[in-house]
């Protein structure tokens, strides 16, 4: 246990300080190259650097390699390769606008290292009722898990600081769950995800100095999904993602097809004159989590909406941790 604690402290510190130190340089480099986008929700429409994916993946790969030096496990390699591939998919989407189907298909392919290295268990665990062995079906779950988690995090990345803050909370919930289930090495890897997100949140929170972009959001989401599969906490991970899954569910059930956010003409929220956000009354607009938070109430600032989303994520995280305890109980 002593080795696990030392590895956790060293690799988490490296994860945090790599992103914390690299991101300001990345912001300057992106601004110098004019790689910025307008923040429409901010007074004056400030230009914000994008994408932040490179500093996130640097933090994950460097700290992950240090963790591998402590625990030379194939599971760690599989998660890192899958995450790196998802980063590349996101980077392609950041540089060139791809169709709505590109990301799900390309992200499905990033699960190949997990399949090839065989770092999964075909038993799917459920709380209270035990496990079910699904050798063939589980391959399908692996293939769809990364696109789901990647796109889910990407779809919630609509306000300053939400994607990174969300990942700090959801990542903490699965880290605690993995500790409860005594899967310590994967718990440490999950802790790296938390610290990388926390360091990035410093620059991503309102008012953002950098946006994660597709490369950043998909990196975080894919690593989360890969940890869920390899750590055998698929159901717990899905519960911790509650608000983001709810957002994707609302969006898909209102749009009735897979579509990129940028292709949508009718926006779900409107900006007031004093730069507050309010729900649109346009019935053709998509229904999203933010629209639902604003519906029937007063206009809120971007920061206020972010905190409502964080409260919802904390609630989901608590349910996920309760679920982890319920895994050990059999009816």
């Amino acid at each position: 246990m002593e080795l696990e604690i030392i590895a956790a402290i060293i690799s988490s510190a490296i994860a945090f300080f790599t992103v914390f130190a690299l991101t300001p340089f990345l912001i300057k480099a992106l601004e110098k190259r004019n790689s910025t986008v307008k923040d429409y929700h901010r007074k004056g429409g400030a230009m914000v650097a994008r994408p932040g994916g490179p500093s996130l993946i640097a933090g994950i790969l460097i700290s992950g390699t240090v963790l591998y030096a402590f625990f030379p496990m194939t599971e760690i390699i599989a998660i890192l390769i899958t995450t790196a591939l998802a980063f590349l998919v996101g980077l392609v989407d950041d540089k060139k606008v791809m169709g709505g189907w590109f990301k799900p298909l390309a992200l499905a392919a990033t699960a190949i290292p997990i399949l090839l290295l065989g770092v999964y268990d075909t038993d799917l665990s459920f709380p209270l009722f035990g496990e079910v062995r699904i050798p063939l079906l589980y391959i399908g779950i692996i293939v769809i898990m990364i696109p789901i988690t990647g796109n889910t995090i990407n779809s919630i990345d609509v306000l300053n600081g939400v994607a990174s803050g969300f990942m700090v909370i959801a990542g903490s919930a699965i880290t605690i769950s993995l500790i409860i289930l005594q899967n310590y090495e994967i718990a440490i890897l999950s802790l790296l995800l938390v610290f990388v997100s926390l360091a990035f949140y410093k620059y991503h929170k309102y008012p953002s100095k950098i946006f994660p972009g597709d490369s950043g959001a998909l990196t975080l989401g894919a690593m989360y999904g890969a940890i869920a599969i390899v750590g055998q906490v698929e159901v717990i991970a899905a519960i911790a993602l509650g608000p983001a899954i709810f957002n994707s569910f609302l969006f898909l059930s209102s749009m009735k097809r897979i579509v990129e956010h940028r292709e949508i003409k009718e926006k779900p929220v409107e900006l007031t004159e004093d730069f507050m956000l309010k729900a649109t009354s346009n019935k053709k607009a998509s229904v999203t989590l933010v629209r639902l938070i604003l519906a029937g109430g007063r206009p809120l600032s971007e920061k206020e909406i972010g905190f409502v989303i964080f409260k919802l994520t904390i609630f989901s995280g608590i349910l996920a941790i309760i679920t982890a305890f319920m895994m050990g109980v059999s009816l």
Partner: peptide
């Protein structure tokens, strides 16, 4: 604000 309803839904 419908925040509480969202907690119920989750």
């Amino acid at each position: 604000m419908s925040g509480s309803s969202i907690f119920v839904f989750i």
